[in-house]
Amino acid sequence: MDTIKPSNQSSVLIVDEMHLSLLPMLEKIGYFPDYRPEIKRQEIIDILGDYKGMLIRSKTKVDEGLLKNASNLKFIGRAGAGLDLIDKVTAEGKGIRVFAANEGNRVAVAEHIIGMLLALMNNLLIADHQVREGKWLREENRGYEIFGKTVGIIGYGNNGSETAKRLAAFGCKILAYDKYKVEFSDGYATESTMQEIFDKADILSFHVPLTNETYQLANREFLNSFANNIYIANASRGEIVVLDALLEGLNTGKIRGACLDVLENEKLNQLTSVQKDTFEQLLKSDKVIFSPHVAGWTHESYIRINEILIDKIQAIFN
């Protein structure tokens, strides 16, 4: 059966899997949603000129080649945090508005980081495994409290500030550094220099986008700049933390433990030989907890992200 081709004045191409609540939300504000999560790159290029908007998640890289036929496109929205998948310069040069739903998963990310830190610092995964094997080792699993620790937060946007709220409730002192903000101290965090974080932090959490400035930010020199031995949490982008440097820090004791929701290369079947060696050594460490890039991936955030996208579309075109 032939489908009726929508007018480019109201049609939105959805090229990644989204919560299906998005479709009636778009229709409610006057847009025709064309949901094609299995679409291939060449087909997007061929048909993109027929659409007013495009919504992506993580699968689709939006570059100059993808946008070459996007003569009628007015907006690109990302269902998630960060715009590193989108060539903003090319898009905005074509008059295309670009935005993400950064606010949509901030609660999920903050809770996930707290969960990982609690599990790591209290040996919960190790202890659970031991009990299942019939081992009842109490002293060996004596943990550390989050209470009273000084936490350095790098990046004080949606996720950074939400994480600060949660950690402040645990009785932590929060030092926040954000290169692009000033006078942002609040009831949860104190605006700080990077040097103050180097000098005082017990726990470090990254909340920055992937840019040329943040790529491999946490290298050997960076990690060795801390006065204290620290715990690290990264639920932002994997390329920010150099895993070889992290492994070295774990081996020397400079890094007391790491919570990694993201990796430098998340395609585990395509690791280079060097990456594979580092990853396998990290897998053997009981000082590391992994999750598969799901910090912002709750059932609630899946819907909330759609709501944020709709609000931004309405704000732009109303």
Rank of each mutant, 00 (worst) to 15 (best):
I316M: 14
T298V: 11
F170R: 05
L217D: 13
T278E: 01
P24I: 03
G49H: 13
L124T: 08
F99A: 10
R220C: 07
Q275R: 11
I313N: 03
E213T: 15
F147I: 00
D46C: 02
M25N: 11
S11W: 01
V62A: 06
A201D: 09
A235C: 14
I113R: 14
S185R: 11
E64H: 09
I255W: 10
L271H: 15
L55S: 13
G257S: 09
A233R: 05
L85R: 08
A315V: 02
F32G: 00
S185D: 09
H112V: 01
I230A: 06
Y177S: 01
S11V: 01
I56L: 14
I310E: 12
D46K: 11
G249C: 12
Y177H: 02
E92I: 00
F99G: 06
D34T: 07
K165L: 08
L167C: 08
R142Y: 12
F317Q: 14
N141Y: 02
A218L: 14
V12Y: 08
P33T: 00
K179L: 14
Y177C: 04
L167E: 09
A164K: 02
A70R: 01
V242E: 12
N159D: 13
G143F: 08
Y302W: 10
Y35L: 09
R132H: 15
E111I: 06
I39H: 10
G65H: 11
N265H: 04
D286A: 13
S301P: 04
L83Q: 01
N234Q: 12
T298M: 13
C172W: 00
I56G: 08
I203S: 15
T190M: 06
F184A: 10
L83G: 02
A295L: 01
N141H: 03
N229Q: 10
I96P: 08
K135S: 07
N265K: 04
I4K: 15
Y302D: 14
R132C: 13
G238Q: 08
V182Y: 14
N229K: 15
G65W: 04
P209S: 03
Q275F: 06
P37G: 02
Q130E: 15
V288P: 01
A164R: 02
I76M: 05
D16Y: 10
N141E: 10
M194P: 01
R142H: 07
E139D: 12
N224V: 00
K40H: 11
N158G: 03
N69L: 09
Q281W: 05
E92V: 01
Y188S: 13
D277F: 03
L271R: 15
